[in-house]
Design a protein around this nucleic acid. Structure first.
Lengths: 194, 194
DNA sequence: GTCTATAGGGGGATAGAC
DNA sequence: GTCTATCCCCCTATAGAC
C-alpha cells in the first residue's frame, strides 16, 4: 500500500513535492496535485487516506534528499571549519525559501507527521554544525566564551532567517548579507587554523 | 472611508490583527474576521474592497505598534551595545512566531501592499541594529573584520530564524539557544567597553 | 453604516464503474 | 489501480433591505 511500484502514486508524491515548495501546505490542494501529476481523484485516495498523508510522504522524501546533500557537505575528510563554511556559502534560491523550513509557520506544524521530517532536516543540519564546531573547539580553534552548540544554533538560525529576510524584502541580497555576516562572525570567533 | 470613527471598522481591523498573528493570511477568512469582530458581511465590504485591503490595514497598524516598541528599545540614551543586547534578549513568544515575519512564506508577500509593512518592520530593526553597531565601531568597540551592516543582518536573521527553529521543533528552547549564541558571538566580536 | 441573504467557485473527500 | 461523477462545506464577494 505504501509501497512504490504503482506509477500514479509516485507521480502524486512528486507533484506534491513540487507544490509544497512552491506554495506551502495549506495552499496546495488535492486538485492541484492531481492536475500536476496527471492522476485522477481515485488514485490519490486509493494510495493515501487524505491530503495530510500525501504531504507527509512528500515531506519525508524531501527531507531524505536534503539530508543526503547535507551529509555529503559535512564529509569528515575536510577540516571542520571548512565544512561549516561550505554549508554557509552553498548556493541557495533565497526567494523560494527553505524547501522544508518554509512550512514553519503553517498550521501543518501542529501535525506531528508533517512536523517530523522538517524537524529532522533542520535538526540534522544543526547536529552536523555542532559536531564540526566541537571538533574545531577540541583543536583549540574556537575563541573562549563561544560554546559550539550555541554557535551551531546561531548559524542554522542565520540561514533560516536569511530566507525570511529575502522573501520579506523580495531581494536575494538580503540573505546574502546575513550569510556574509555569518562568515565574518565565524572568522571572528575562530583562529586561522582552518 | 479609511477614517477611524466607525466602530465596526475598528473592530474588523482589530480582529484581523489577532487572526493574522494566530493563523497567517491565507488561513484567515473574512468569515472568521466577521465572527470574531461581531460585524456583519456588509460592514467589511463597506469599509474595504476586499480581504487584501483589510489585511493591509491590519498589518500597517501592527507594524506601527511594533516599530514603536523597537524605537523605544533603541533610545539613544543607553550605550550602543547595550541597545543591541536589549533587542536580542527581549521577551518573545517563540512558538507564536514573529508577529509580522511569520507571513514571509505566504503568497501574500507577492502583494506589495501586504509585503510593505512587514518589510518596513524588519527593515527598521535592521537599521537600528546597524546604527548602534556603527556607533560601537566608531568607538573602537568592534573587532576588525566585522562590518556593522553584515553583523546587523546576522542578528536580525538569528531572531527570525530562531522563531523558525522554535516552531519546527515545537520548543521554545530552540530559539533561546540561538539567542544565547548570538549574545556569545556579540561578546566575542566586541571589546568590553559596553 | 450596518445588516441578512445569496451566489459562484474551490477545498477535501466519497461512490462506484471499469 | 485508476478513472469519472458527485457531495457538502467553506471561501470570497455581491445584492439589497434597513
Amino acid at each position: 500500500m505504501a509501497r512504490p511500484g504503482s506509477s500514479k502514486r509516485e507521480a502524486i508524491v512528486a507533484a506534491t513535492k513540487t507544490l509544497l515548495w512552491e506554495r506551502g501546505y495549506e495552499a496546495t490542494s488535492p486538485r492541484d496535485v492531481l492536475a500536476l501529476s496527471g492522476a485522477g481523484q481515485g488514485s490519490l485516495y486509493h494510495h493515501f487516506p487524505g491530503k495530510r498523508e500525501v504531504a507527509a510522504a512528500a515531506l519525508t522524501e524531501m527531507a531524505e534528499e536534503e539530508i543526503a546533500v547535507i551529509d555529503a557537505l559535512f564529509t569528515p575528510g575536510t577540516p571542520p571549519l571548512e565544512r561549516v563554511r561550505a554549508y554557509l556559502t552553498r548556493e541557495r534560491q533565497a526567494l523560494r525559501g527553505c524547501r522544508l523550513g518554509r512550512l514553519a509557520n503553517e498550521s501543518a506544524m501542529e501535525e506531528p507527521v508533517l512536523r517530523a521530517p522538517v524537524a529532522a532536516y533542520l535538526g540534522r543540519i544543526q547536529a552536523c554544525l555542532r559536531a564540526s564546531l566541537e571538533e574545531a573547539a577540541a583543536a583549540g580553534l574556537l575563541a573562549p566564551g563561544i560554546e559550539p552548540p550555541a554557535l551551531a544554533a546561531v548559524l542554522i538560525a542565520v540561514v533560516e532567517g536569511g530566507y525570511v529576510l529575502a522573501r520579506v524584502h523580495w531581494d536575494e541580497a538580503a540573505m546574502r548579507e546575513a550569510i556574509d555576516g555569518a562568515v565574518q562572525v565565524l572568522d571572528g570567533v575562530t583562529r586561522p587554523g582552518a
